[in-house]
Design a protein around this nucleic acid. Structure first.
Lengths: 341, 341
DNA sequence: CTGAAAGCGCTTACAG
DNA sequence: CTGAAAGCGCTTACAG
């Protein structure tokens, strides 16, 4: 023991491990980083010393020399309450965090609490505080985030509307096709007056699912006038439902762009004495917990939300490690038949 | 221009700013850190140079010498879906992030996705990756987090059940008193058969709000047998409501420990043909968006959720800066009368 | 396979 | 008020 060992026990450094193990800093560093060029018995001894001393590498020192922060940002350009309110996002975040836990990267939360990120957020992202960013719930009304890819490796949840250079990386599902399948299911049930509650027109899930609904109806020679747009929230879904019912009391089928909005719609249908699925057949989207938490278990398009989050991380990590990665990744969906259609 | 200025424009360093401004690194550093010992005109010139060069201090280098990570963890020992599902948490997080945005600290998300944090999470927290931690939605079944305070500055959202040394820091409301007020309101309405849907018994909001309800009823000489425990989720609130109604068809008043659970209860009451407030008067807790998103606008106990998050940050920052801080901070609540009672 | 040395970008006593 | 110098804890060519 050194004579001055009286102060509070500070975290041991590489230096101290080296001294204790009787080797150089370089060797300890190599062992810590799993270099293969250390003799087996030396490596074992160093590892043991690391164990007994409880050595943990200093993040900052590592970052400084490696020029990597080992941190990635989760950027949420969305109203915080709405973001939290949709179980779809819970799944995405869960997928992200659990995949990230297996890496040495840390997730830094950047809630913009608005569609357009603040200068603060933008500055943070471009100031080199993080090595990359994950963007969830992006609106095309914002252009700053779409351009971020030029500065920083970025992966989006869902295809962005903007075309940029370099092209934006994203993980998504084929929303058009999935919505088409959902709508065709309604048609196959014999429904003839089919409406939709679409998502906002500045988000691709809104735009694309609407397009899929339209395509299915047009192919079947049906009218495509029964569209109500909502903001993906339950409350707005209810409002849209009321509007649709006012416009078309004979509505007998409905495709809703998210389970949460469908939940709102279900409440209104119930309130107006429409039976689901007898009077109005309803198909949702997401297959989130919201699908089974309402009065009627929703038939819905399942999308692998948690996996979407995980694949976003994979893509970003690939980008960070300079690997060749596909810039677009589409995950499969399928229709889940339950009670509402 | 130096002759080798051809590569990709790297972020300028302190050194480069110093060279450009014709001063030493020390001086630039002092200006960056707002030292008062720099002559005004020199400071102005350096500031200008910093501007034109777009200099941003390197986080890692700073952390290394200052021995501070400038990062704090948000630890959520809770099922992710449930955490996201309750708008109360959305407010807390919003309060935390917006307060933090005014500081130089970064928020690192640690979703445990379970009541007990994984070894991974615990290791992360104690490995010196963050300077402090904020714990939200803590369950007393977990003891690891409660002991964390010995290693790291930690602030809890809500009084923890465990007694520890050093004592745990937390921001909370007086749940007992608030629940008592809510229940007395029900009594003042003439209700005589008053039940409660309590939160889980391993969380203080669960325990304390139940205690407040009981205290009010006992003071009035009423029975306190109508208790159903739920887990703060809407679905479980519905289940609890059904149970209560089965046990006491004559129930005419209800205090629910959260708005979200009250929403679930409202659905069941409606389903069983009970009018609210005519047949059953209901008082919730939180005054979150959930209070006004259901079929009946809830009378509820307002608690300043967003401010709670902000005060948690204040307390932690105080701890980090070695200031003297009160280890317990209680925020005021008040009853909001709407339509349900 | 191993070590001495330089360097990552900052801050801060210490002199002056 | 300002600068030269040491040092924070690592990694990595470079020799050997």
């Amino acid at each position: 023991m050194s004579p001055d060992s009286g102060g509070p026990r500070a975290a041991p450094t590489l230096e101290e491990v080296a001294a204790a193990a009787g080797v150089s800093r370089s060797t300890v560093s190599r062992v810590v980083n799993g270099s293969s060029q250390v003799k087996a018995d030396v490596a074992a001894h160093v590892t043991a010393t690391i164990q007994t001393l409880g050595y943990i590498p200093n993040r900052a020192a590592r970052s400084l020399v490696n020029r990597r922060n080992m941190a990635i940002a989760l950027v949420v350009p969305e109203d915080t309450t709405r973001f939290f309110g949709d179980p779809y996002f819970a799944s995405i975040v869960k997928g992200i965090t659990s995949r990230l836990q297996q890496s040495d990267y840390v997730l830094v939360l950047q809630l913009a609490d608005a569609v357009r990120p603040s200068g603060n957020t933008l500055r943070f992202l471009t100031a080199g505080n993080v090595d990359g960013a994950l963007v969830v719930s992006h609106h095309s009304r914002d252009t700053a985030l779409a351009k971020l890819g030029a500065t920083l490796p970025v992966v989006f949840n869902g295809r962005p509307l903007a075309q940029t250079d370099p092209p934006i990386c994203f993980v998504d599902v084929d929303n058009v096709a999935a919505a088409e399948v959902a709508t065709r299911h309604l048609l196959s049930l014999g429904r003839r007056r089919i409406g939709t509650i679409a998502g906002p027109d500045d988000m691709t899930p809104g735009v694309d699912r609407l397009a899929g609904w339209r395509r299915a109806l047009e192919a079947a020679g049906h009218a495509t006038d029964l569209v109500a747009v909502a903001d993906f929230s339950q409350a707005d879904g209810a409002t849209a439902m009321a509007e649709l019912l006012d416009r078309a009391p004979d509505l007998d089928g409905l495709f809703v762009a998210s389970d949460l909005m469908a939940l709102g719609a279900l409440g209104v249908l119930q309130g107006r004495g429409r039976r689901v699925p007898e009077d109005v057949a309803v198909v949702g989207f997401d297959d989130s917990p919201a699908a089974t938490s309402g009065p009627v278990r929703l038939t819905t398009v399942h999308q692998p939300s948690e996996e979407t989050g995980a694949r976003m991380v994979d893509m970003l990590l690939g980008l960070l490690h300079g690997e060749h990665v596909e810039r677009e990744r589409l995950l499969p969906t399928h229709l889940v038949i339950r009670d509402s259609a």
